[in-house]
Write a protein that binds this DNA or RNA. Structure first.
Length: 492
RNA sequence: GGCUCGUUGGUCAAGGGGUCAAGACGCCGCCCUCUCACGGCGGAAACACGGGUUCGAUUCCCGUACGAGCUGCCA
């Protein structure tokens, strides 16, 4: 059995869309599961859509996610070039297209864009009140197929711009097999004579893809199911060339909450956007892997290594999957909770410093928030009270379950204040001892003693950590100041 | 419009002729607890519809509905 070779073939047109990321991931997993080769190929045949810097994003994403390719523009494996514009320069695509022309499976077309546009006739326009959905016929009419060799040669010589189109049969059917969707058959009548070589000399994606996959000996092709409808045309190409087709693995679409294709502005469209939203790479990969696939033993939290071991492309789902941000948040939180403290601290620090300018023990703050956040963006609202005491209402001291009210809270704070002032050991343990002995003396519930204190020093209903943690982090001076403020408020 | 694909709780998702139809997220409740989280326990919640085939269909077949994708000298 020959070794598996998969390829991720992005176009450098902008950010890394999560659908593309999943495709890359599956290609990687399929290859690595069988110890195969994972290739990166850049499909930049559309110069108009090329975006500066997009290539960097691709490399950065691959590196950041750990999807390391074995062959690519920067890693020659003997099947290069790995950039289609460079391959184009070698003339391969034209050469192969001409082979097809010689076989009668393709032909030159000199039709102007105007003529092409006129072909898109609208039928039954008057009746279609269903929005502006007019019936449109978009198939090319094979007008240039009937040009004689001499006419073609003449036009070619005179420099008229041309295109090379596939010559599809008009009768019969074409069938291809997809690993997830099974056999799919279409009427050849439906097949458009798609363009293989554009008038600028570049191949279309449709053509370059087939030629390159064959030349690079790709065994498994993974792509989104938006390609399902064009695959029969690729099958024709393989048949015309006499090449063996790779295994097709079309993945279900990833949609937004409205069940529409993910769009640029939906917030979860790209890997980079997600990083900006405070998610970490491992969680994104893990989550995306589970969109359309699940492991046999139901495991959900899986590292890339585990995914490699578990991944079986035969278990990919057919139905489109909604990208659920809420679940991603949960998963990200799981990763954060399980992260080694030091790494968490390093990653959280910039976000902490964004809100806290005072000289406080950042590491301890980080430890407090670790189990309480889902993304790094959650940090801000959680720790802002360390920086400045918010303006709170004394209603907050009244808590039914804690059995506290303004009056009891005032008493507790006034009695505790001198004890805190006299406290030498202002560590967490020292403060705890002071408060607990007070509680014991008074014979009150923990909550009755602690709720007023925590509220006074934080000014918030809920906080990461409790009274002693907060007080020791704030320091003696600041926490006493806040307690005095509380006493004043309660007296007023 | 045509073609293609899809349809299990709100979402992800197992299962595929006989199951009390898994699990996860979210939601709700309880426990833990100085708050919020964490953790633990429990709960509500699904086979789109109509015909077949069959002793028996969520599972197979056919329709219908709904949804999506494609219908570019984009990928």
């Amino acid at each position: 059995m020959s070794k598996i070779r998969t390829r991720y073939a992005p176009s450098p047109t902008g950010k890394m869309h999560v659908g593309n990321l999943r495709t890359a991931l599956y290609e990687y997993l399929i290859a690595k599961h069988e110890d195969g080769t994972f290739i990166l190929r850049i499909e930049d045949t559309d110069q108009e859509r090329y975006v500066e810097g997009a290539l960097d994003i691709i490399y950065r994403t691959m590196k950041g996610t750990g999807l390391i390719h074995d062959e690519g523009p920067d890693k020659d494996g003997g099947y290069g070039p790995y950039v289609q514009s460079e391959r184009q320069a070698t003339g391969v695509y034209l050469e192969y297209a001409k082979q097809l022309v010689d076989k009668g499976s393709a032909y030159y077309c000199f039709c102007s864009k105007e003529r092409l546009a006129s072909l898109k006739s609208t039928v039954g326009n008057s009746v279609s009140e269903d929005e502006d959905e007019a019936k449109v016929i978009t198939k090319y009419d094979k007008h240039c197929l009937h040009l004689s060799k001499e006419e073609v040669a003449k036009k070619l010589a005179s420099g008229i711009p041309y295109v090379i189109r596939q010559n599809n049969p008009t009768t019969g059917t074409t069938t291809f097999h997809d690993v997830v969707y099974g056999d799919i058959t279409v009427e050849n009548e439906e097949l458009d004579d798609m363009i293989l070589i554009k008038s600028d000399g570049y191949p279309t994606y449709n053509f370059a893809n087939v030629v390159d996959d064959h030349l690079m000996k790709i065994t498994h092709v993974v792509r989104g199911n938006e390609y399902l409808s064009s695959t029969p045309k690729y099958t024709r190409l393989y048949q015309d060339f006499g090449w063996e087709e790779p295994a097709y693995i079309h993945c279900p679409l990833i949609t937004n909450e409205e069940h529409k294709k993910l769009s640029k502005r939906s917030g979860h469209s790209s890997y980079e956007d997600l990083l900006e939203q405070g998610f970490i790479s491992e969680a994104i990969i893990n989550f995306v892997a589970l969109l359309g696939w699940s492991s046999t033993d139901n495991k959900e939290i899986m590292s890339l290594e585990e995914l490699i071991k578990e991944f079986d492309y035969k278990h990919i789902n057919k139905a489109p999957a909604v990208f659920d941000m809420v679940k991603l948040r949960w998963m990200n939180g799981e990763y954060l909770k399980n992260m080694e403290q030091d790494r968490f601290y390093q990653m959280a620090l910039p976000y902490i410093k964004e809100v806290i300018t005072k000289d406080l023990p950042y590491e301890r703050i980080a430890a407090l928030i670790k189990t309480r956040i889902e993304t790094f963006l959650d940090i801000k609202d959680m720790i802002d009270f360390f920086e400045a005491l918010p303006d709170y209402d004394i209603q907050m001291f009244t808590h039914k379950k804690m059995k506290t009210d303004s009056e009891s809270s005032l008493a507790v704070l006034e009695e505790l204040l001198p004890r805190f002032e006299a406290l030498e050991d202002y560590s967490e343990a020292g403060i705890e001892a002071a408060i607990m002995s007070y509680i014991a003396e008074k014979g009150i519930k923990n909550g009755q003693g602690l709720w007023p204190v925590r509220t006074a020093v934080s000014g918030k209903q809920s906080t990461p950590g409790g009274a002693y943690e907060i007080m020791s982090i704030l320091g003696k001076e600041e926490s006493l100041r806040r307690i005095k403020i509380a006493i004043d408020k309660l007296k007023a």
